Computed example of a mutant assay.
Amino acid sequence: MDGIPPVLQMLQSMSWTTFKNILINGYSELRFPDTDNSKMLVDFIWYHARADPFIFVIRASMVDKLWSIIPVFYALHFTLHHWLYFTQDNGDAMPLNYRLVIAACLITMWGARLTYNFYRKGGYGMEYEDHRWVVLQEKIPIGLWFIFNTTFICIFQNMLLAAIVVPLYVVWRANLFNSVPLNIVDAAATALFLLGFFLEVKADQQQWAFHEQKRLAAEAKKRPDELTGDVKRGFLTHGLFKYSRHPNFFGEMSMWWAIYLFSVAAAYPHLTTEVLINPSIVGVIALTLLFQVSTTMTERLTSGKYASYKLYQKTTSRLIPLPAGTSLDKLEKKNA
């Protein structure tokens, strides 16, 4: 690429054609090198240092299923890759890319919060299983369930973990050709992430407190006529849930769209169509679509369990927090 201006090299490195070629040409690298136990660690480090970071992430994503932890490792992988292994012409360590550092710190915040929330719900216990999978398993024939389990749960979701962090790979590639200073798009991405993070933390805490109220009421063996408000309804409608039925889902999607924006910031101010809609958008679009399916499934289960939930659907936004509609109390009295 000698003779091509750095800016043009950078833009070419972010193109859909480039990503297609990376996938095709990197297919042969989708395995770790043969090694023996005596030098396994050395061979692994050598592979990590020399492999294209994107190809390495695709390979690693097929191995682990820790949803809240793996994206953090991927983010650190893209951020520290050159700093760990390579030096500048003068022998000094490669400088860290501050855009990658900021994004990696934000993703680490995301992972720490999600890991803690999953832990306090007992998610790491051997007996824990997502209630939606339990319902699906009861309705799907064993043969089809096996296919669903191996393709969607084990493969697609793990590939998705890699895909949502790929914007950092775009930043890494762009920086190889032209280092773009932090700019207004980085600021917007950080602000959007922090807003989404706040929404998710607040919504999860409100949900946790509500379920604790339900648990205490059940332990006290209170009669239905002794229950009031949301505890009596069976689902939360106050706090952030007054403005959105799933504010935590909206916060989660907002954070990953913010991470995508960092890939756009890497080419600022050259915001061409191919920069604004670069290949790393695939991951966040897939995540957004997955949330639509997951939300629909969750709501079907909830509306079948609680009588007032369909009224709640009429008065409150599905995902985006919006001003509340007619009071649910009024709708319940009207339909009594």
Rank of each mutant, 00 (worst) to 15 (best):
W83P: 12
P141R: 05
P181G: 07
T228L: 07
N278Q: 07
L161M: 13
M109D: 14
L192F: 11
E274H: 15
Q292K: 12
D43K: 15
L30P: 07
M40W: 10
L261S: 03
D52I: 01
N90L: 06
M126D: 15
Q207A: 05
D130L: 06
D329A: 04
T108V: 07
S179K: 14
F118D: 04
Q213V: 00
L160A: 06
G122F: 12
A265N: 03
C154G: 15
Q157C: 13
V231Y: 00
M253V: 13
I142G: 11
P279A: 08
A51L: 10
E219M: 07
K222Q: 07
Q207K: 06
I259F: 05
Y85N: 10
S38F: 15
A60L: 13
T87I: 09
V134W: 05
K330Y: 12
S254K: 06
R223F: 02
K20S: 12
D43N: 11
A187G: 12
L136R: 06
H211D: 10
A203G: 07
S179W: 09
D52T: 01
P95V: 01
M126K: 15
A93G: 13
M62W: 15
P269Y: 02
V293C: 09
T326K: 01
N21T: 09
T315P: 00
A324M: 04
W145A: 10
L311N: 01
P247N: 04
M94D: 07
Y27M: 13
D230K: 01
L328Q: 00
M14T: 03
L41C: 13
E274D: 11
A60F: 11
Y309V: 05
N183Q: 07
L30C: 10
F262W: 07
D2G: 11
K202L: 11
E332M: 00
H270K: 08
V166W: 14
F197R: 00
S28L: 09
H246K: 09
F44W: 14
V170N: 10
P279R: 08
K139L: 14
K310T: 13
F249Q: 04
M255Q: 06
V264R: 00
N25T: 14
L290W: 14
Q206G: 00
D329E: 13
L331Y: 00
Y47T: 08
V57K: 03
G251Q: 00
M253K: 08
E129N: 09
L96C: 06
N117M: 04
T150F: 12
F235N: 03
S308N: 14
P33N: 05
T302K: 09
A93R: 14
V7W: 08
L287M: 10
E252R: 01
L261R: 03
L144H: 08
G283C: 03
W83D: 12
S280R: 03
L11V: 04
F291V: 08
M62E: 14
F262L: 03
H48K: 15
P321V: 01
H131C: 13
T272N: 15
S317H: 02
I22S: 11
R120G: 11
I107T: 06
L195Q: 10
L311D: 03
F235S: 05
L199S: 02
H238M: 12
F146E: 13
